[in-house]
């Protein structure tokens, strides 16, 4: 079953008003990711990061549904974490290898674990882990579901299908959120995926919703009931967001042509939302921008994280 929202391109439709908390959450992720790219450019970050610029609205939209639930994230997971915990200090310290990092600098950008949030860096690995977590929840009679964020590229991994099969067979409360941004690193989706996500979900008898909208309130209206069914009826669900990656895969490795990038920019909530409530946006944007700047300054000044290998 595929449900699409009204067909008018969201870029030409104004976004509906957000309350300050949602807008702050979006802005926190946006400015955090921009700060990372600035830190890289300044030679202050090592390794790699994968920013979620343009996709921030997805975890923010889902946040109210996921209070006690387990979130499995991936390499592009900063937004997932910040929407869940609003902890820019802990995440930045983790990425910079500073004291107070969520995982003492061992995991870095793509291996973060805290309470009911876990990210890891191998594509497709999380779905069967999610089945195990969901099985635990179901057997203990807990009302929790498990959310696993994956991308369009993840569907190339056979592990995805093993997990979907078990989730459907065993009626597990597993919500698979697909951030289909049309590109896997540098490879367009149409070059790496035959058929569609919808048909793949249908093959397992798993419900599927595809959402073109980037409007947080619309998304919540559409998903409230299906997510309740995952939780209450133990029906696995695949929700596919047609989304837009504004930035490079990691840093400076974007080979997409200008018109493709411009198409993504036309769907950028950060460009669209000021038309909805310009004064609210300007005030919150300035405030959150300043907040992230101060987080960067504070974390940068911290001492290196301490971890004794093999003694944890």
């Amino acid at each position: 079953m595929a449900v699409s929202l009204p067909s008018a391109p969201p870029s030409v439709r104004p976004l509906s008003p957000l309350d300050d908390a949602d807008l702050d959450s979006l802005l926190l992720i946006r400015h955090f990711e921009n700060a990372l790219l600035d830190l890289f450019a300044a030679g202050k970050l090592h390794g790699t990061v994968h920013t979620c610029l343009g996709q921030e609205y997805i975890p923010v939209a889902l946040r109210p549904f996921l209070d006690e639930d387990f979130v499995l994230s991936n390499h592009r997971g900063h937004g997932h974490y910040l929407a869940q915990y609003e902890d820019p200090h802990g995440l930045l310290a983790e990425i910079m290898g500073r004291e107070g990092g969520v995982c003492r600098g061992v995991g870095g950008s793509q291996h973060v674990y805290r309470e009911r949030f876990l990210s890891t860096g191998v594509q497709g690995e999380s779905l069967s882990v999610g089945c195990g977590l969901a099985l635990h929840s179901k057997r203990r009679g807990l009302p929790h579901l498990v959310v696993a964020y994956i991308g369009d590229g993840t569907w190339g991994e056979g592990a995805v299908y093993e997990a979907l099969n078990m989730a459907a067979l065993w009626r597990l409360p597993l919500l698979v959120v697909v951030e289909n941004n049309g590109i896997a690193q540098s490879t367009p989706t149409q070059v790496q995926m035959a058929g569609s996500v919808a048909d793949r979900a249908a093959a397992f008898g798993i419900d599927h919703h595809r959402l073109e909208s980037i409007d947080i309130n619309e998304i919540r209206d559409v998903l409230a009931d299906p997510i309740a069914r995952v939780r209450n009826e133990h029906r696995p669900l695949v929700v596919e967001f047609a989304t837009h990656r504004l930035g490079p895969h990691s840093k400076g490795d974007d080979t997409r042509p200008a018109d493709v990038l411009e198409h993504a920019r036309r769907h950028d909530w950060y460009r669209l939302y000021p038309q909805t409530r310009p004064e609210q946006f300007a005030a919150r944007d300035a405030r959150i921008r300043a907040r992230v700047e101060s987080v960067v300054q504070e974390v940068e000044a911290r001492s290196p994280s301490v971890w004794e290998a093999g003694r944890v």
């Binding site: 195990g132 977590l133 969901a134 093993e162 997990a163 078990m166």
Partner: peptide, 28 residues
């Protein structure tokens, strides 16, 4: 019967599910 599960032919998936159970505090 609730804790001994016959699985599909999915060795990666089997150990993935076992890893999820272990992460949740069970033994697998």
């Amino acid at each position: 019967p609730d804790r001994v599960l016959a699985t599909p032919l999915s060795e990666g998936g089997i150990v993935g599910v076992a890893g999820g159970l272990a992460l949740a505090g069970d033994t697998a």
